[in-house]
Design a protein around this nucleic acid. Structure first.
Length: 514
RNA sequence: GAUCUCGUAGCUCAGCCGGUAGAGCAUUUGACUUUUAAUCAAAGGGUCUCAGGUUCGAAUCCCGACGAGAUCACCA
């Protein structure tokens, strides 16, 4: 980049960098900096007592060493107040000219600190902790080290004593493309992601505590299986064969159940070549787990306890604000059959209807259909259009038509149905689970039905995975499995409206940058 | 993929029935030894996303491109 393309402020910072070097100071020192405390730790635990004569006695933190990014500078004559931000919080620094001089030489204070330091620089300080007369816990700095010079000016976001935020960076494009800036300057962004991490850790611990084994399965697959979706296609040069990025890991986890594990799970990054909006990113994370000798009733019990635990771990409560609603994650969750749900919201009993009748019902309800839709798909349409949005509180929708569930075991007593549930929260599907189909003959027939759907024009129907069928023929124990949308769940746990707010680097269209 | 809205200084925004740009913060210079959205005084900073058109004249009106957001379609 030539100097002509740099802004005034960027040029000044480069000049400052040069001057710092000329003064013999390394602006990017290599040695470790011996940080002793976090800002949050000092602010939470500093104590002082006021003596009878009115003077204060500092009780702890007589020597601290703290490092962080310089976020604010206020000069007050021969003193100075700075704020630095470390991973935990911000803390104020108090500097005095005479204390930072060497033998009457005030160059470091007058030149380096006052003129050559900029907001955004990383610095480290050593000193003692005290409270200013306004009561703010502050580090009285006895030495200051430049740890890394910043060459680009950060947006200045200010927060007043009441917590009002001024000039926050709102532009979503700026925030997502330069997440590092968003994280640095916008209050609360880091907390959202820390909550997400806490959520994932809680789930992992819960699964481990119940005997789950975390596994990794292929992302590059010959046959993209386990879901109905359009895949991303790529190519392996050495083998000269096409590969697909996985749309789901289901069929691989079941192979592991065949192999003799009885509880496996994976946080699976899946890729689907479809539209993007506030609830869809091309790559997203699903937690899938499969437990042998269980059925979908067991899975409902397990899931509601898992989510209750997640809510408490992330929000210290089972009652969470989500948009305009308050959602209770207290177990147990409501359960209702798909047909009853449709009956409740449309007044129509579709449970005995054939394809033609269902098509009539759709017409009456102003739902568009097309000839490729079979019975299952039509029922699914009615539910999505008329029912789904009404399930704000966590609700298990159970027992789905066989046609739309090619990997699910037939219902033990209800003909034409399968043992499947979806968990709806805030009007969105968060989880999808089955008693897994383990009858290899039945599975082969289901795959063949998918093929005929594909021939009928459904471009998302499943391919036949012959190796998976072979695995089932060796025998898979009765098993229940589930997929839980981690990004969607994170949105709920952090009360965020958009998936982009719970992904560090949401997918963006490439843009030419200078 | 469709429709609507948006794109002005480092950041947040104003200006938009056409007369080539303003504010606050940030930056620069100066004052101030407990300030805190620090304050006070002064100064600098913009091919108004890009490319065309209408016009004597365009940030402003029209067309196109690029990017973003919202709604819809597809899906989780």
């Amino acid at each position: 980049m030539s100097n002509q393309e740099l802004t005034e402020q960027e040029l000044l910072r480069r000049e400052s960098l040069q001057k710092i070097r000329e003064l013999g100071i390394d602006p990017y020192p290599a040695a470790l900096y011996p940080v002793s405390n976090l800002a949050s730790d000092i602010k939470a635990n500093y104590q002082e007592e006021v003596l009878e004569d009115g003077t204060k006695n500092r009780l702890n933190y007589q020597e601290v060493c703290v490092a962080g990014r310089l976020m604010n500078m206020r000069e007050a004559g021969k003193a100075m107040f700075l704020n630095i931000q470390d991973a935990s919080d911000r803390i104020q620094l108090y500097l005095r000219r005479e204390e930072l001089a060497e033998n009457e030489d005030f160059t470091f204070f007058d030149q380096v600190i006052k003129k050559l330091l900029d907001i955004g620089d990383f610095i480290g300080v050593k000193g003692f902790v005290f409270k200013t007369k306004t009561g703010e816990t502050t580090i009285h700095v006895q030495s200051l080290t430049l740890l890394s010079k910043s060459l680009k000016p950060l947006p200045i976001v200010k927060t007043d004593a009441e917590g009002n935020v001024y000039d926050a960076v709102h532009d979503p494009e700026f925030r997502y493309r330069q997440r590092y800036v968003d994280l640095t300057v916008n209050p609360g962004v880091k907390e959202v992601f820390l909550k997400r991490t806490k959520m994932v850790n809680t789930m992992r611990n819960f699964l481990n505590d119940h005997g789950g084994i975390e596994v990794d399965t292929p992302v590059l697959q010959n046959i993209p299986g386990g879901a109905t979706a359009r895949p991303f296609k790529t190519h392996h040069n050495a083998l000269d064969v096409p590969f697909y990025l996985r749309i789901a890991n289901e069929l691989f986890l079941k192979r592991l159940i065949v192999g003799g594990y009885d509880f496996v799970y994976e946080f699976s990054r899946n890729f689907r070549n479809e539209g993007m909006d506030r609830t869809h990113n091309p790559e997203f994370t699903i937690l899938e787990f499969y437990v042998a000798y269980k059925d979908y009733f067991w899975m409902m019990d397990f899931t509601e306890h898992l989510l209750e635990k997640v809510a408490i771990a992330t929000n210290d409560s089972t009652e969470l604000p989500v948009g305009e609603n308050t959602i209770s994650f207290k177990a147990p969750f409501k359960r209702i059959s798909l047909f009853d749900a449709i009956k409740d919201y449309t007044g129509i009993d579709v449970s005995q209807m054939e394809e033609d009748e269902l098509r009539e019902v759709c017409k009456k309800l102003h739902i568009e259909t097309d000839p490729t839709m079979g019975k299952g798909k039509l029922i699914d349409e009615i539910f999505s259009e008329k029912c789904e949005k009404n399930f704000i509180q966590p609700t298990f929708i159970i027992d789905y038509p066989e046609e739309m569930s090619p990997l699910t075991k037939k219902h033990r007593s209800k003909k034409g149905l399968v043992e499947r549930f979806e968990l709806m929260i805030n009007g969105k599907e968060v989880a999808n689970a089955y008693s897994e189909l383990n009858d290899p003959i039945d599975q082969r027939e289901r795959f063949e039905e998918q093929v005929s759907l594909m021939e009928r024009g459904d471009d998302e129907a499943m391919f036949i995975d012959h190796d998976f069928l072979r695995a089932l023929e060796y025998g898979m124990p009765p098993t229940s499995g589930i997929g839980i949308g981690i990004d969607r769940l994170a949105m709920l746990m952090t009360n965020q409206h958009s998936i982009q707010e719970v992904l560090f680097f949401p997918q963006m269209k490439p843009k030419q940058e200078n």
